[in-house]
């Protein structure tokens, strides 16, 4: 009887050990994700490729003309690029599942100058793991995703996340959707 109790205790301890080890392994797999490729024609038909911006901080913003919050955040992104472009900040949009004419109208209306790669089928958005819009990723100078924003960006986020990255202070922010 005593032997039986000891076996149960041993098995329980083993189970806990396996759980802990599995947890450690899971944690070891996590880490900064290398930014996926992003290339294609923009809304004006010019080729764009994030690879050409290697070594810079790139804000990748997924948007569509039918998305209200996307409309609201475009001037914020444009202002960030204006303010920090000389220090190596670039904004590159992904115009997802949109009509090109409607997207061009929105660009004209908001006056943004950053290019957006056209993603008619939505596969570029899938490549970046996007499940809703707007979503914004920040790719650091090493080419890894340093921050991921679900929802519209605002000036506070630009100041707390983008500015330190541009000026060399490391930051890591992965939000939950």
């Amino acid at each position: 009887m005593r032997r039986g109790k000891a076996s149960v205790r041993t098995m329980a301890a083993t189970a806990i050990g396996v759980l802990v080890l599995a947890g450690c392994q899971h944690g070891a797999d996590d880490g900064p994700r290398v930014a996926p490729p992003l290339s294609g024609l923009d809304l004006q038909g010019n080729p764009q490729d994030i690879a050409e911006l290697a070594g810079e901080v790139v804000v990748v913003n997924a948007w569509a003309s039918w998305c209200g919050p996307c409309r609201d955040e475009m001037p914020v992104l444009e202002a960030a690029q204006d303010a920090h472009g000389d220090d190596g900040l670039h904004v590159l949009g992904i115009n997802t599942r949109d009509r090109t004419d409607a997207a061009q109208d929105l660009v004209a209306e908001t006056g943004v100058s950053f290019p957006s790669v056209v993603d008619t089928e939505g596969t570029l958005a899938v490549e970046w793991g996007i499940s809703g819009m707007p979503q914004t990723f920040v790719v650091d100078r090493d080419g890894t995703i340093a921050a991921h924003r679900f929802g519209a960006v605002d000036q506070d986020w630009i100041d707390s996340v983008i500015v330190p990255l541009v000026h060399g202070t490391s930051v890591s922010e992965e939000e939950e959707p």
Binding site: C67, G132, P134, G151
Partner: peptide, 20 residues
């Protein structure tokens, strides 16, 4: 959940399935 967060102002994002 996302709409609730949106209404509470904590999320400026419309869920993907809300709009095409």
């Amino acid at each position: 959940d996302q709409v609730t967060a949106f209404l509470e102002g904590g999320l400026g994002q419309m869920p993907a399935e809300v709009l095409p």
